[in-house]
Amino acid sequence: PKDEAKKKVKEAIKRGDEETAKRIAKKYNLDWDDAKREADEER
């Protein structure tokens, strides 16, 4: 599900692992900028 994928993307971003985050986002066709902004807001 997309929500689960987005959570994984945000967790990867918070760990500083943007490569993984981008790969997950691409795989699930998520909006990378959107997920990154959300992760930054939660930090």
Rank of each mutant, 00 (worst) to 15 (best):
T20S: 08
D3V: 11
D17A: 03
N29C: 15
A5I: 10
D31R: 00
E11V: 03
D31N: 10
A39W: 09
L30A: 03
A12P: 00
P1H: 13
E41S: 11
E18V: 13
A21K: 01
K27H: 10
D17V: 00
K26L: 10
L30P: 04
R43V: 13
D34Y: 05
D31G: 02
R43D: 11
K8C: 15
K36G: 03
R15Q: 09
E11F: 00
I13L: 13
K26E: 15
D31P: 04
E19G: 05
E18I: 15
K6P: 02
E38I: 05
E42H: 06
K6G: 04
K22H: 06
D17S: 02
P1R: 13
K26Q: 12
A35P: 03
K8M: 13
E41N: 10
E11D: 12
R15Y: 06
D34T: 12
A25H: 01
E4Y: 11
A21F: 00
A12Q: 02
E42Y: 05
I24W: 02
I13F: 04
K6R: 14
L30H: 02
K10H: 10
L30G: 03
A21G: 04
G16W: 02
T20Q: 10
A25Y: 00
D17L: 05
A35G: 03
E11L: 04
E19D: 10
A12K: 02
K26Y: 04
D17Q: 04
I24C: 08
W32I: 08
E42S: 07
E19I: 10
K10D: 04
A35S: 07
D3C: 13
E19V: 09
K2P: 11
E18W: 15
E4V: 09
I13D: 01
A5R: 03
D17E: 06
E11P: 00
A35Y: 08
A25V: 03
D17K: 02
Y28F: 10
E4F: 11
R43T: 13
E18T: 11
K10P: 01
E18F: 15
P1G: 14
D33P: 04
K8Q: 13
G16T: 01
R37K: 12
K8E: 10
A35F: 13
I24Y: 00
W32P: 01
E11K: 02
D34G: 05
R15I: 08
R37H: 08
E38H: 04
D3E: 13
R43G: 13
P1F: 12
I13S: 01
D40Q: 10
A25C: 14
K10L: 15
K14H: 14
I24E: 03
K10M: 14
E18L: 15
D34R: 05
K2V: 14
D3I: 12
E42W: 04
K7D: 07
D33N: 09
K7V: 10
K14D: 10
T20A: 12
D40I: 10
K14A: 12
K36F: 10
E38W: 07
D33S: 06
R37F: 08
K36P: 03
A35R: 01
R15N: 12
E19N: 06
R23I: 11
E18S: 06
R43K: 12
W32F: 14
P1L: 14
T20M: 12
A5S: 04
K26I: 09
R37G: 06
D40V: 08
D3L: 11
K14L: 15
E41Q: 12
A39M: 09
T20P: 01
D40G: 08
A12H: 06
K26S: 08
D3G: 09
E41M: 13
A39N: 04
N29R: 03
P1A: 14
N29D: 14
Y28S: 15
R43E: 13
N29I: 02
K6S: 06
K14M: 14
D34A: 13
D31Q: 03
A35D: 02
D34I: 10
E19C: 11
K2D: 11
I13P: 01
A25S: 04
N29V: 02
E4P: 03
K6W: 14
I24P: 00
A21S: 05
D3Y: 12
E18Q: 07
A35C: 15
A12C: 12
K7P: 01
G16P: 01
R15C: 13
G16K: 02
K14S: 09
E41H: 09
W32V: 04
I24S: 01
T20I: 08
K8L: 14
E18M: 15
A21N: 00
K36M: 12
R43Q: 14
I13Q: 02
E4A: 11
D33R: 02
R23D: 10
P1I: 14
K22R: 14
D17T: 00
D40M: 12
K27N: 07
E38R: 03
W32A: 01
E4I: 12
D3W: 13
E19R: 09
R15A: 13
A12N: 03
W32Y: 15
A21L: 01
K36Y: 10
A5P: 05
K10Y: 10
K36E: 05
R43H: 11
R23V: 09
K2M: 14
K10R: 12
D40R: 08
G16L: 03
R43F: 14
D17I: 01
E4W: 14
K14W: 15
K26V: 07
E19A: 10
R15M: 10
D33M: 08
N29F: 07
K36T: 07
R43A: 14
D3Q: 12
A21D: 01
K14V: 08
D33I: 08
E19Q: 07
A39C: 08
K7W: 07
K7Y: 07
L30Q: 02
D31T: 03
K26N: 08
K36N: 06
A5H: 08
I13H: 01
K7C: 14
D40P: 04
R23W: 02
A39I: 10
R15D: 07
E38S: 07
K2W: 13
G16S: 02
K8D: 05
T20Y: 11
V9K: 00
K26P: 13
N29A: 07
L30S: 02
K2S: 12
E4R: 11
A35E: 09
G16I: 01
K8F: 07
